[in-house]
Design a binder for these strands. Structure first.
Lengths: 326, 326
DNA sequence: CTGAAAGCGCTAACAC
DNA sequence: GTGTTAGCGCTTTCAG
């Protein structure tokens, strides 16, 4: 920066000003400085800038998994808004492991991010303490809680299970099963579904849980095979914790020539891009993940701007989309 | 850090040492320092550390899209290895836009990353210049080139098209079509396929291109509809630029009661987790994306270690997996 | 509108 | 083993 200044015949400070507050520099010097920057290929050191200004323009984002479309689409919306506002994302995968999450939080906090994005509302006590102690704005997404660390944006997972059960009963189904991945929020959806279905019909729900945290089409096919061949489940509705499972059930049903939704009805979760185009089209729970990510970004930006009416709990809701599969 | 030192009865520097080179501090002082750190909740400022040591432990990673499983699974492998070695990832989406990529590279370079991960081997001249000028190790993935910026790890995209065409001809198909997304690498696969197929059979290949950069099941269904209803393509093989398209073709074929591969044969690309479990199982091109990401991380680590035998072009190859769909 | 001085919180080099 | 000194490359006062 000093070199650039020398070339432009000004001091280092003026170069700094030309970069951060161009309006505070005379048009003429500004031009000379810009020429010098171009000539040297100078790229300001943001690390030093962050240290001096106590503003890093860095956001720490922690998600369970990059490859799960649920989180990546959320991140897409989030990072887009953040980028437009001059922030950069440091990203890490927690893998549904809260100890690992805590370690990652500590590492990220060392970079002095201006904000933190967390997935879910359950974090280790140590993580909570560090986050609160840091005084950095934190937004928790994909779930809601009465007592967020700072603020949270999401929807009620049990609420989706409730809605699915009520829909299923109203649609006339009297037998039900669930297919659920090893994911705490998915389990809460399952439990709410089962409880409500039982309440309304008096019938127990057959619950099938998978050890994997990631739902795949393969396991969806296996689940229907299991349901039909071993559990004698031949008519009723299946509430899946993910559209991937639901797609697997539809695939297996097609392979077996089963009628959907006549013999087996299927409800997915997520409304992924393929859900409207499966055969038959999938009935599922829609959550606008991109918008959720954008809302999370908005919440952080509000906090940065010290907006007084920033809310701390935002329920973005969900929607049950009825298509052909149930 | 000075406060912690005071609590432990040592100077600030000793605290720094205890953190970075614990072996260079006596066990007794080390313990006292650790106690003080715990008591204060001190988290070292990595920004300041990076500035002083000229080592940021930050890696800039640029991918076209977070939501495309191709890139996210690559990132998963990459970030895992990097994390294990103490590096943190700054991630951005370029959206297949090379101007945007250049802007992002400049922003990232400002953070003085220790390494850069780029997707693809085609970058704007300005981007190349900045990257080379920075002297920072760069690894380009998902493609190979004779003249990488620094090093590249990937496979030959035309090679996959060639292999698919040869497989198709050998399997007896004499008519062929392609379904391709608006992606430069996908187009190179398509062109190689079409050229080779023509060379071997004398028959032209019907090419269907989609404007969207992201392949979806929906467009795959639409493609088959178009092929069958408007192009009179009723027997032959379709080489898709993504498993998503291929899955759409299979879905539409099932919906229409077409025989696969008897009437319509389908070859996908990617071998995504569902490919082995579609109905019928999908013939596709497999690339081990997780391993590719890990190899990219390894290449960067080698460069950090100034390993002399680090190679600059690594072809990880691909594999044509024959299942039921072709 | 521009510059001089001080310092952000750490590491590196050198003494002791 | 531990402390002292001098920066890393910026931004932030405060003068002029």
């Amino acid at each position: 920066m000093a070199t650039v200044g020398r070339m432009a015949g000004v001091s280092q400070v003026t170069v700094s000003r030309a970069l951060s507050h161009p309006s505070k520099v005379s048009p003429d010097t500004l031009r000379r400085i810009q020429d010098a920057i171009r000539a040297t290929g100078f790229v300001p050191n943001a690390l030093a800038g962050a240290l001096a200004s106590r503003k890093s323009n860095l956001i720490a984002a922690l998600v369970p998994s990059f490859t799960n479309i649920v989180y990546s689409s959320l991140l897409h919306g989030f990072s887009e808004i953040m980028r437009e506002n001059g922030y950069q994302i440091m990203l890490s995968e927690t893998g549904h492991d809260s100890e690992r999450e805590q370690t990652l939080i500590e590492t990220h906090l060392g970079r002095r991010p201006d904000g933190v994005l967390l997935t879910g509302v359950h974090h280790s006590p140590g993580a909570r303490r560090m986050l609160i102690g840091s005084g950095i704005p934190v937004v928790e997404v994909w779930d809601i809680s009465e007592s967020p660390i700072d603020c949270c944006i999401g929807f009620s997972h049990p609420g989706t299970g409730l809605a699915a059960a009520e829909f299923a009963v109203e649609a006339g189904y009297r037998r039900a099963a669930t297919v659920t991945a090893a994911d705490a929020r998915a389990c809460r959806r399952r439990d709410a579904f089962a409880a409500r279905f039982r309440e309304l019909t008096g019938n127990d729900v057959l619950t099938m849980d998978y050890a994997a945290g990631t739902a795949t089409l393969q396991h969806g096919r296996a689940a229907l095979t299991d349901l039909v061949d071993h559990q004698g489940f031949m008519d009723g509705v299946v509430f899946c914790s993910s559209d991937q499972y639901a797609h697997g059930l539809l695939t297996e049903a097609a392979a077996r020539g089963l009628n959907v939704p006549g013999q087996i009805a299927v409800i997915g979760f997520g409304d992924q891009d393929f859900a409207a185009h499966t055969y038959p089209p999938m009935t599922t729970v829609r959550v606008d993940r991109g918008a959720l990510g954008e809302a999370a970004a908005g919440a952080l930006l509000q906090r940065f701007a010290k907006d007084q009416d920033a809310r701390s709990v935002i329920d973005v809701g969900f929607e049950l989309i009825r298509r052909g599969s149930a």
